[in-house]
Lab assay of single mutants.
Amino acid sequence: NKFNKELQWATWEIFNLPNLNEEQVKAFIDSLRDDPSQSANLLAEAKKLNDAQA
């Protein structure tokens, strides 16, 4: 299933962003679980936040 692979990839990527704190990671993962179809958008937002906090 396409969404499942995207969800797994986005989850792994978010867990490995070095500049997000635990609460931010949890919030993004919760959002992914709530709406897996938004995984690409949520990953992009997480990466933006990660870069901003570098």
Rank of each mutant, 00 (worst) to 15 (best):
N1Y: 01
N1P: 13
N1R: 03
K2L: 08
K2M: 15
K2G: 15
K2R: 07
K2I: 15
F3N: 12
F3Q: 10
N4A: 07
N4H: 13
N4G: 13
N4Q: 14
N4I: 10
K5P: 11
K5Q: 15
K5A: 11
K5V: 07
K5N: 12
K5H: 08
E6L: 14
L7Y: 07
L7H: 04
Q8E: 15
W9D: 07
W9R: 09
W9G: 04
W9L: 12
A10T: 07
A10V: 13
A10I: 14
A10D: 02
A10E: 02
W12L: 06
W12H: 05
W12T: 08
E13D: 04
E13K: 12
I14P: 01
I14Q: 02
I14A: 02
I14H: 02
F15Y: 15
F15Q: 14
F15R: 14
N16H: 13
L17M: 13
L17T: 00
L17A: 01
L17H: 02
P18G: 10
P18S: 09
N19L: 04
L20H: 00
N21P: 02
N21I: 08
N21H: 07
E22L: 14
E22M: 15
E22D: 14
E22I: 14
E23W: 12
E23K: 10
Q24G: 00
Q24V: 03
Q24P: 00
Q24I: 03
V25R: 11
V25W: 03
V25G: 02
V25H: 04
V25Y: 03
A27H: 12
A27I: 10
F28R: 00
I29A: 03
I29F: 05
I29K: 01
I29P: 00
D30R: 14
D30G: 11
L32D: 00
L32G: 01
L32N: 00
L32Q: 01
R33L: 15
R33Q: 14
R33V: 14
D34N: 09
D34P: 02
D34F: 12
D35H: 09
D35R: 08
D35F: 09
D35A: 07
P36S: 03
P36I: 12
P36E: 03
P36W: 05
S37W: 06
S37M: 07
S37G: 08
S37H: 06
Q38V: 06
Q38G: 07
S39E: 03
S39M: 11
S39H: 13
A40I: 10
A40Q: 11
A40Y: 14
N41Y: 14
L42I: 15
L42N: 01
L43R: 03
L43W: 03
L43V: 15
L43F: 04
L43D: 00
L43Y: 05
A44R: 13
A44T: 08
A44N: 08
E45T: 12
E45D: 06
E45N: 09
E45Q: 15
E45A: 14
A46L: 03
A46K: 00
A46N: 00
K47L: 07
K47D: 01
K47M: 06
K47R: 13
K47S: 05
K47P: 00
K47Q: 06
K47N: 05
K48V: 07
K48I: 09
L49F: 05
N50V: 01
N50M: 01
D51R: 12
D51Y: 11
D51I: 09
D51T: 08
D51A: 14
D51S: 11
D51V: 08
D51G: 06
D51W: 09
A52N: 07
A52Y: 10
A52P: 03
Q53I: 08
Q53F: 06
Q53D: 03
A54K: 08
